[in-house]
Amino acid sequence: MLEKNNLMLIIFVLVLLSACGNGTASDNSSNTNQNNKQQTVEINNISANKLIDQEPSNKAKDILKKHDEVTGIKGANTSNKLIIAVQIKHNKRFQLSKIKKELSKELKENFKNFHVELTIDKKIYLELEKLEEKIQSNSIKPGKLGKEIDRITKLSKEKT
């Protein structure tokens, strides 16, 4: 009797889980189209007349914002380095590594003269947000910017 009950419980849980899974999956597909129209990507394009030309990172932002799963982009560049941090929609985070690979490949194809670094880490996103503000207000020197970008790149590669 007890074993039968256990079996019923296991089946119930499995049905419940699969039902939930299907529900969200179908919801996603029906909602994505609506979301696409309303979705706003958090971007701060930096005006051209700054001490360091930020045109490459602005261009990278324009390329990346076409993707549906991207909700926010921050980035900065020196003459040969480009670092971009993106935020991904929460329900797409299961395919995080795949999305990162795709976006990274696309950027590398578009910026062949640059050493491109793409990350999806929240910390790097926050750091780049601060850096963008500094560039915007012209309160950072070109040499310092290079050092700062190196520091952020190193931070993004830390494993432990």
Binding site: K122, L126, L155, S156, E158, T160
Partner: peptide, 14 residues
């Protein structure tokens, strides 16, 4: 830890 210290998403676990 991510917001107030120098930890990334990867290293904040420890």
């Amino acid at each position: 830890y991510i917001y107030y210290f120098n930890f990334t998403e990867q290293t904040a676990g420890n």
